[in-house]
Amino acid sequence: MSSTSIEHEDLAEDLRCIRLAGRLDMVGVGEIEMRFTSLAASKAMKVLVDLTGVSFLASVGLRCIIHSAKALDQKGGKMVLLLGDNTVVRGTLDTVGVSEIIPVCHDAAAAMAALAG
């Protein structure tokens, strides 16, 4: 069973990419939540959250993402989710309506355009 990982890269002063991979279940979220919140919602910036490597997404992972997206939004920043062809994660996001409130993109170019908009 895959572990959970988090990496980030600052692409510009106000643009950050956070890559999550593995299982975003209760155990996995417990491992990355504090770091994710710190990276995603500490200041007003554009944040691309790359979920293409996420193999399992539970509601605890959704809560973590929504919580940071709201905090970022309140600070004047913006979060976009990058999925690639991750149909498992896409199905979960669509089912609970997250894709209606946080922009979801299939490729990096579209994600960058959504962040710029």
């Binding site: 509601s59 959704l62 809560r63 929504i66 919580h67 997206a69 709201k70 939004d73 609970v96 309506g97 997250v98 209606e100 409130i101 946080i102």
Partner: peptide
């Protein structure tokens, strides 16, 4: 939820 500001973490 209709917007991010309306989103609540419970019930998902």
């Amino acid at each position: 939820p209709a917007s991010l500001s309306e989103a609540s973490p419970g019930g998902l």
